[in-house]
Nucleic acid binder design. Structure first.
Lengths: 177, 177
DNA sequence: ATCCCTCATGTGATTTTATAACATTTCGAG
DNA sequence: CTCGAAATGTTATAAAATCACATGAGGGAT
């Protein structure tokens, strides 16, 4: 299956109906496997336990390749034979987020698989307000105005949330045909 | 009453018990009045209606000078004789946020009065994970790594969420006495 | 002034998101 | 093998946000 990095799926459309318009296509099956392999390796190296639920949640997020709410994930977990109560999903997500395998998109109250599983990084996201597609990139929070302000204030930054909302190229093109 | 810009109140402490340690103290009463006056002026100029509920919500947020959840605001509205159902608070907050008089802190699901009511700006926030104090500053989202990525991807940024989580100077000092 | 239309508010109900509390199971160190 | 810590399952509840619909207030045209 071939997806592109930005435009995956609109609110109300199934993945099947979504044309792979956009940019930067890639082999998605390989991409999922790579994400899982990277997670396995990092967990082994750090003595973390990538248990079946956790692995499944990561796999689901990588497969879907878009932001999913905790309850959407929970539905998929139920289908896969795991527990079906909210804490099951939230605990797995907490673990994965804590260790950087997934990220929470605060703006959407939703989660995405990390697109840069190997590097450590301060993620930043571009969120399409039309189709909810999410693309991950990097930010450099310590540089720029925010870093200056923090230094001036004596504020010690530990983590940053950087999310840009706007229109993705696919939706922009669709708007003016 | 004198407050400082960063450290206002911890989760479980009342404002009275909170010493004004920190930086950049200011006359808070004047600060509230200025925020309200600025809002009145901007609404008049733009033909917007700063109705009693909306004005009250802005006043409450300016007075408290920290991030408040919608339900905390709702409690205060009830005390002030307004409606007490969630939509009352959310509608006022939506209006105020849409026009830049308040900002939503996505990380906290809470709202703060805008600290720079006159300039138009892309706000950024520093959030203390110990005391939940919030300081507003500016970001320059179009510059830097995110702006580059957006341009490269053809993504059109309309709004940015920039929130740094960490430790404020007051809490840092308190940690090592 | 009156009518009308639009926008704002009030209220009840519901949905969505997230956590608390506690019993049970699994895993690995010793 | 056993003990203790970590992970999971489950019930219940809290917190955040929205829907739907009735009522009310304000501004413009006649």
């Amino acid at each position: 299956m071939i997806y592109n990095n930005m435009t995956i799926e609109a609110h109300d459309r199934s993945a099947e109906n979504m044309p792979p318009v956009g940019f930067e296509k890639h082999d998605h099956r390989a991409c999922v496997e790579q994400a899982l392999a990277a997670a396995e390796a990092r967990c082994a190296a750090k003595g973390l336990r990538l248990t079946p639920v956790r692995r499944k949640v990561l796999e689901l997020l990588a497969r879907e390749h878009r932001a999913l709410g905790a309850y959407a994930i929970l539905d998929l977990l139920r289908d896969a034979g795991f527990g079906s109560q909210p804490p099951v999903a939230y605990r797995a997500l907490d673990f994965l987020a804590e260790h950087g395998f997934v990220h929470k998109i605060e703006r959407l109250n939703a989660f995405v698989a990390c697109a840069h599983p190997n590097e450590n990084h301060s993620p930043a996201f571009m969120i399409c307000r039309v189709c909810d597609a999410v693309a991950e990139t990097q930010s450099t929070p310590a540089k720029g105005a925010l870093g200056d302000a923090a230094r001036a204030a004596g504020f010690q930054i530990e983590k940053t949330v950087v999310e840009a909302e706007g229109i993705c190229p696919a939706c922009k093109d669709q708007a003016k045909p």
